[in-house]
């Protein structure tokens, strides 16, 4: 019973990490940029869902003892994801695009700047008080729904990347931006699309996680973002199946450490595993080993 429950816990947590990790990995794939602000976009997604739920009257409905309809929940997700997709495009346009030809560390610092801006701006606008997130999904099938939704989103993403024209363009940009541009691909549009896609997934993860652990505050993206980033690196950054694998592994590893009775070492073990894996496979689990050309 305990072990089954812990496996389910790990799977749920892991699929949320995986959803966030996908955003890191996609942006890295096309831009070689660690988008430090991604965790905070995840936070904005949670707030987006929160405000959407109040605006649609779902929050007061649930407070009165009712439950939300499927359409309403879908609408909340859609609003949150759309808002974050726009925010992602906005961030890319103004903070990263002007620096595309600069050294990568430069855009990393702007990414950190954007991250701080969202965190402290969030504390100024939303106040640091935690807010209760409405229980959009009934507790009985909460974990199943989260894993199912996450899985559906991941499959959807894989389809977009492998089966559509825009997905092919994304892969081309990832392979060689200059060459892709010469082949007539509008790289700016493709990169913006990648940000939108990643941010929408982060928003979905933010809303799912807020239903699962029902409080939100402006700093909730810091640790989640960091761990998802670790998950992306673990799987091999820039690699979509790798991010999913890394996320799930991270979720299971953390749960396993707690189940074994070492909950106070949880964060250390997560990073310890990462270091070990990277020492054995320096490019992550599914990352291709770098062939050095001279």
């Amino acid at each position: 019973m305990d072990i089954t429950q812990q496996l389910i816990n790990g799977l749920t947590q892991g699929s949320i990490y995986a959803l966030i990790a996908l955003g890191y990995t996609m942006v890295y794939g096309v831009l070689r940029l660690i988008n430090f602000a991604h965790g905070d976009v995840y936070m904005l997604g949670a707030y987006g869902g929160f405000f959407a739920a109040s605006a649609l009257g779902v929050t007061s409905l649930i407070d009165k003892g009712g439950s939300a309809g499927i359409l309403q929940v879908a609408a909340i997700f859609a609003i949150g994801m759309l808002a974050c997709a726009l925010i992602g495009i906005f961030i890319e346009r103004f903070a990263y695009r002007p620096l595309r030809s600069s050294p990568r560390l430069t855009s990393l610092i702007t990414a950190i700047g954007v991250s701080m801006l969202l965190e402290f701006g969030g504390q100024a606008v939303f106040t640091p008080e935690p807010r209760p997130f409405p229980a959009l999904i009934d507790n009985r099938f909460l974990q199943v729904t989260i894993v199912g939704t996450a899985l559906a989103l991941m499959v959807g993403l894989q389809l977009i990347v492998t089966r559509t024209r825009v997905g092919r363009a994304m892969r081309a940009v990832s392979l060689d931006r200059a060459a892709a541009s010469l082949m007539g691909i509008n790289t700016d549009v493709i990169i913006a699309f990648t940000f939108a896609l990643g941010s929408a997934l982060a928003a979905a993860a933010g809303i799912l996680n807020s239903i699962y652990t029902p409080t939100i505050d402006p700093l909730l993206g810091v640790m989640a973002g960091l761990k998802a980033f670790v998950a992306a690196v673990l799987g091999g950054i820039g690699n979509i199946p790798g991010a999913v694998l890394g996320g799930l592994l991270m979720g299971f590893a953390e749960t396993a450490v707690v189940a074994a009775g070492y909950s106070s070492y949880r964060d250390a073990v997560a990073f310890g595993i990462l270091i070990l894996v990277l020492l054995l496979r320096p490019s992550g689990l599914l990352g291709r080993v770098a062939a050095e050309k001279v």
Partner: peptide, 10 residues
């Protein structure tokens, strides 16, 4: 931390 289920399951 937001998820406490692993500890609580213990």
């Amino acid at each position: 931390d937001k998820d406490f289920r692993a500890q609580l399951t213990n």
